[in-house]
Design a protein around this nucleic acid. Structure first.
Lengths: 146, 146
DNA sequence: CTACATCCTCTAGTCACTAGAGGATCAAGC
DNA sequence: GCTTGATCCTCTAGTGACTAGAGGATGTAG
């Protein structure tokens, strides 16, 4: 039973252009094509894509996923490497959380002290201007939203 | 007392190309130049750049910082807007933390179950393959490291 | 047969920088 | 004065992981 790229996208909950992108960078093998050049997929492709999607949600980089996929394609090899990748990812996530908790503290102090007057007396601006208010926080910024 | 771009970079702990980049996108005003076209800065520039740097570390986007800077340039305006930006950033950080905590849980389970045999029996690979192991986690991935 | 959905490729944009080429200028030591 | 090495200039391109859109071909339902 074969699937179009759109159906694969729905089956694995990934957007269509993302699938093409994964093919381009070699995370997915080149898809077979119909006579009219449309991509055709089978059931294992859904598995593979779901694997990728899940790993991305867990924060694994594309390069890490590439290794993981290589590994899972060769079931007879020892799985040290997979364990190492998972452990590295865990510690990266733990670091990130620790960093964000520091930021959260600082932002909370800012927000709690929110002024209701003019900018000249604004705590938010003041805290941002004066780095002395905080201990050094980690390196990588967050890009939350705001 | 004037500063070269390199000295400004050191004073505010920001890299030289980043300063040029900030000028290009209009976060910093165009710097005055010497006869030989080198940028020259003064003490207020250090303040402004430190402000930017600190806000970036707190995860504010460049657009948010632009607003914050506009605000701080006009001390007579009410500071509602700054409060709103800070609150938005705080909630973005809190969301991020919550998401990452879910991921941490899942990764911990993966790592704790680490196998010592062949990939065919590897818990890491298995968990990644089988999405049913986890409850849905939030949208944006982390890009920690790994 | 006519819409309209889906597909194709290709290019460019996102965010906040970072890296490097290729060349000019400056500051210190001799 | 001269050399050496650091710093500066502009410009282009690359990062990661996609996303958006143009412009056109094909598939499918009524």
């Amino acid at each position: 039973m074969s699937l179009s790229i759109g159906r694969l996208a729905k089956a694995a909950d990934v957007k269509v252009p993302t699938i093409r992108f994964y093919e381009e960078i070699g995370l997915l093998p080149r898809a077979a094509r119909t006579a009219s050049d449309r991509r055709v997929y089978d059931q294992p492709a859904v598995q593979r894509l779901a694997f990728i999607r899940h790993a991305r949600q867990l924060g694994f980089s594309v390069e890490a996923i590439r290794s993981l996929l290589d590994l899972s394609d060769q079931p007879d090899r020892p799985c040290e490497e997979a364990n190492v990748l998972a452990a590295a990812q865990l510690s990266a996530v733990e670091n990130k959380i620790a960093q964000l908790e520091v930021l959260r503290g600082e932002l909370r102090r800012m927000v709690d002290a929110a002024c209701h007057g003019r900018v000249s007396a604004c705590r938010v601006i003041e805290v941002l201007s004066d780095h002395a208010h905080c201990e050094g926080h980690g390196s990588t910024p967050t890009n939350g939203g705001a």
